[in-house]
Design a binder for these strands. Structure first.
Lengths: 118, 118
DNA sequence: CAGAATCCAACCGGATACTG
DNA sequence: CAGTATCCGGTTGGATTCTG
């Protein structure tokens, strides 16, 4: 899976996986289906969240996992990293419009899980 | 992630992952988010499909992958395996009502992928 | 046709310790 | 606080070969 970079009007870049799966479902899963990715996005829906708060929300994920995923998701333009101030360092992660466009799927998934008693 | 077995009225069993993630999104992803799982389910929506046909539809997946996923998904009651006849052996995979209940999510995912040009 | 068996390299992800 | 660095065992998944 190789990355393709698309220039956005905003000046930022969106890295799309040059994932040549014929199936759009598989391609979508590569973006938001990885471990923790959906959860991360979901927890950002009500506003920016700080790193350690996110870690607490995710419960089982290690810092390493989280920072890896966050980096990937920033590259894909699903979220944006912001350094607020220094001493002590404060960083927040904020969902982008593109990331927000995926929330509907996640909400359906959430409802499904809950209704099916999973 | 340990399995819990639930007895269904049909007599079949559904293996639910005793996945204690606090987040329902993460739990749902464990069921239909794995590599190929969503695609498999999607390709079964119009009726039973045979093993090799499925392999062709999925393009990049090896037989090993597919048979592993199919087994997992049968255990989770997302689909049902049926041996049709013998010489040469014919087997089809058919989506269950439970599996069908997840199709809405996959359809949204598919639309999203296509509209976002992923 | 529909897999199972085996081999093996690559990656994943947890634990721990360290940094600015 | 928000990570990075390193170690390391376990899992994943491709390639290949074999079977009823």
């Amino acid at each position: 899976m190789r990355a393709r970079v698309e220039q956005l009007k905003s000046g930022r870049k969106r890295v799309l996986e040059a994932c040549h799966e014929p199936c759009p479902i598989e391609r979508g899963m590569r973006l938001i289906g990885g471990k923790w990715k959906g959860s991360i996005l979901w927890h950002l829906k009500d506003g920016p969240v700080r790193f350690n708060d996110l870690a607490r929300m995710l419960g089982g994920a290690s810092k390493k996992m989280i920072s890896q995923r966050l980096k990937e998701m920033e590259d894909m333009d699903l979220l944006k990293r912001k350094v607020l101030n220094e001493q002590p360092v404060a960083v927040t992660y904020e969902i982008t419009p593109f990331g927000r466009s995926a929330l509907g799927i996640l909400e359906e998934l959430k409802d499904w899980s809950e209704h099916q008693g999973i």
